[in-house]
Amino acid sequence: MTDREYVVGESIAVPWGLDTVEGTVVGAYGEGSGRRVLVEVNVGDGATETLPFPLRALEVTRSAEEHGPPGTWVTSARFEESVRDALADSLRKIAPEWNGETHSQLLIDPDARVDLAFFLPDRFLFAEVKHYTVDRSRKSVENTTAIEQLREYMVRLRDRGYGNSVGLLIMDRTPGGRLVKRAYEMRAKGFPVWVVEWEPDNAKAEVELRQVLAEATSYELTGA
């Protein structure tokens, strides 16, 4: 564990779903492993919120940011916005009973948020958005860390009474065979998660996203 001190007024990157956003340190509390840094972040539409972050989470995020160009989170935020709009547009067609309410960065645990959330009449749909800002080669993604995170989020949601949850991992790269297989294995074990590539203004990507969304919204839930 680092003993780095965070100064009030300092701009830092903080974990936000599977990506990061910029925030401003406004305070801290606690000692040792229980120490938390209070960071004010923009949660959209000009609104801000002050959130506590453990030191370890901030250090992991800082390390990741050092390997990418400054400000890459802005591009990630725009990509997430395009995903949100695409999901909402598809849901209006697939699930006309949906009331149109969309949640961004929804808190599901004291230290965990999901990027996007939609409360449908019979299930809770959440999505994690992954934007690869460093590797621009358009190579497929085989690493399963992100899909494992979805499973962990689903466990937390079930602990809070959301046994009717289904999850999507949406990325700007092609999911590799290993990643697709892992998502299939999870569904077979009762964890309904899917992974799909998304690219704005791409008709083929739009069709694929809608197909996955249709499968997720019609998936037969048990024990909800």
Rank of each mutant, 00 (worst) to 15 (best):
E208Q: 13
A183M: 00
E197W: 14
N143E: 13
N202K: 10
S165P: 05
R160N: 12
E199C: 12
R182W: 01
K139Q: 13
D172Q: 04
V207D: 09
G177V: 00
M171G: 14
A203N: 08
Y184G: 06
A146N: 10
K139Y: 12
R210I: 03
E208K: 13
W194R: 05
G190S: 01
L157C: 03
G190V: 00
L157N: 01
K139E: 12
V212T: 12
D135N: 14
G177N: 06
S137R: 07
D135T: 05
S140R: 11
R173Y: 02
F119I: 12
K130P: 05
E199M: 14
A188I: 02
F124C: 05
R123P: 06
L125I: 12
L169A: 11
A214V: 08
F191L: 01
L213P: 06
R187W: 00
S140Q: 13
S137T: 15
V134L: 14
V155M: 10
L209F: 01
F191I: 06
D172M: 07
A188R: 09
E152R: 15
Y162I: 04
L157G: 03
V212S: 04
D159Q: 15
E197G: 14
Y153F: 12
A216S: 06
A183Q: 02
A205N: 04
F124W: 08
V207Y: 10
A127I: 13
Y132H: 11
R123K: 12
A214F: 12
R123A: 07
V196Q: 10
M186N: 01
G176N: 00
S165Y: 03
G176I: 00
A216E: 06
A203V: 14
Y184Q: 13
R138G: 08
F126K: 08
E152I: 14
V196T: 12
K139N: 14
